[in-house]
Design a protein around this nucleic acid. Structure first.
Lengths: 340, 340
DNA sequence: TATTTTTATGCAAACGTTTGCGGGAACGTT
DNA sequence: AACGTTCCCGCAAACGTTTGCATAAAAATA
């Protein structure tokens, strides 16, 4: 079952060199002659030598592992980000360990701790909903390079990678206006959600820029933005006197709820009420009518996140950078808003 | 930026004990007195001591990391398994590193190699589609505990965790028969897919048991079971003389394609043609009519997979076990097959 | 009291790698 | 000939933990 394991020492023995020379040769250290470097590398290759990661990590205090924490690994958008992370990390020679916080702040801090204990070189985190525990994040911030992605927070001074939520939302609303909608409702999350707030800002700005009245009655906030809530809130929106002629659901899954209940009441989409979501998730082309939504290039986000993280890891100066990276999302127009 | 790091030695110094005693106390070694054990543990706790994983792994040749390889991390069902894996692993004190093979056999073997080089304690793999490279898997099999889940293969002698595909498919078909269907088509993958073959077997058995003729013309095999293919194949099925009155799509995403094209031709579902899928993915309640499908408890699969893996890791004897674990999936009946 | 046994602890080596330092050989410079 | 450089390479220590072995103290036995 066990294969004999070859070490630097063994190589050195065979080559009649010291382990240090062998080590240096393998690491392309400058004061090793070309001749011996070749000799060493050849033998190493032919004997399938692989350095013992743990000895090395132990010695160099570097693990080449980055930790990732996401609220819910089950979300399609999250998985596309993860895919990007995995790909880029692999490219750069890093391994990735993933944890799921389940939107539980306590779990999140625990994971943060476990990870730095474990000795990851850096951490990528997408925050839980109610991240009032900024403290733990701040703490880990000066123990270990950390950058935020997707669910970020402006209260944490570190680099963050997101969609250009505000602009994307702006263009979505502008599109609704362009097709003639004048009373546009929004279903968003409460204040705790940075992403939601950004999209909300885009909503407000678009309305203002087009001189459309802002009516609090059709600005709906929910704690948990789900299909269920989408349904409930549309029911509510349909019960008020001046019904909206469009609904911007901050999220595809809630948009699904919106569409489903509109259909239940035989309301024509988009003629009577248009709907737009956000994410371009799988179901946007399955629900009928197909959902207008903004596509978020998850892989790009993931790749950028690790790119900046590794930059920070390998940057020896102790300054924590805090760039704000915005990846462009693009509006995809489908039947739920088509101009009739 | 760097916090002082506390080691066994420091603890020992403070406590005026030797490092060995401290180490043993922390590890609940038997010949440490209760008193000092307490003393040590208390201090360790209050000083937030955490063992250096790399020193330990280096010393003990144990990493407490398990590797996971999946073909596509983007599939909802896969993510539910991953969730189960993460949860169970955390519970048992293991960390998880994940890689995505993208259904690329070469990548898969590369990942297998990287992982054992890296020193994971065990590997969990869901095979790529065309796994003709059984060899690499077999090789890693005697370097490192490995168990298969979801996409498995009977050609690899190790323990495997899957859905009870055959029985589940059987019950799905039986359900179709019960609602009066007599000409049931199946859209499946080609022979390379173990899972698909199992479901196909269930299909055949159900038909046989109910004395229904088996017609090759409505047994469709495709290379890549997707929504696209679902559409194409329904088009094909609708073109033959004796049309089916039900379609069993081996997979939800292909079932979506089936339903979409049936609707395009205004064929009544389920009256004219009933549809059943497999997976209970998100879209089964979004597509209309809602899809009858079999629910696969992904988390349970994930948990079981790590359970058996850890069992094997911690089992000192060198025998490779090869249990076949089947987790029960359950048929969920929705509108796409409702008896009228 | 003398002895063995038990209990609790310390010593020191080992794991495989990297790296600061030191030094011999070869070469070039005065 | 004496000196300074440059080029290669080896020695040995260090990283933090675990663990076999030794041993002192305490307890039990004779």
């Amino acid at each position: 079952m066990k294969k004999e394991i070859i070490t630097l020492k063994k190589l050195a023995q065979i080559l009649e060199l010291s382990t240090s020379t062998v080590s240096r040769a393998l690491n392309d250290h400058q004061d090793i002659s070309e001749a011996t470097r070749k000799r060493v590398k050849n033998l190493a290759q032919s004997m399938h030598y692989v350095p013992n990661i743990f000895a090395r990590g132990f010695r160099k205090h570097k693990t080449n592992i980055i930790g990732v924490i996401v609220p819910n690994i089950t979300h399609y958008f999250t998985t596309t980000i993860v895919r990007g992370i995995l790909e880029e990390a692999k490219l750069k020679g890093y391994r990735v360990i993933i944890s799921e916080s389940n939107n539980d702040t306590a779990k999140q801090t625990e994971m943060l701790n476990t990870m730095i204990q474990f000795g990851v070189d850096g951490i990528l985190v997408s925050l839980t909903k109610m991240t009032k525990d900024i403290d733990t994040v701040l703490q880990t911030l000066n123990k270990c390079p950390l950058i935020l992605f997707d669910k970020v927070s402006n209260k944490i001074p570190c680099t963050q990678v997101t969609i250009n939520d505000e602009e994307a939302a702006y263009s979505a609303i502008e599109h609704l206006i362009n097709i003639g909608k004048k009373r546009i409702a929004i279903i968003k999350e409460r204040e705790f959600s940075y992403t939601s707030e950004k999209r909300y800002a885009g909503y407000l700005k678009a309305l203002k820029d087009h001189n459309i009245e802002i009516d609090e009655k059709i600005i709906i906030s929910v704690d948990d933005i789900s299909t269920q809530q989408g349904k409930r809130m549309t029911n509510h929106l349909l019960s008020i006197k001046k019904k909206p002629d469009a609904i911007f659901a901050i999220t595809d899954s809630s948009a699904v709820g919106v569409i489903q209940t509109l259909k239940k009441f035989n309301i024509k989409i988009p003629e009577e009420i248009a709907v737009v979501g956000f994410s371009n998730s799988r179901f946007s082309t399955i629900i009928e009518p197909n959902l207008t939504t903004v596509d978020q290039p998850g892989e790009t986000i993931g790749k950028n996140a690790v790119k900046y993280l590794i930059e920070e890891i390998e940057n020896t100066t102790d300054t924590i950078s805090n760039k704000m990276i915005e990846i462009k999302g693009t509006l995809i127009i489908r039947d739920s808003t088509f101009k009739v």
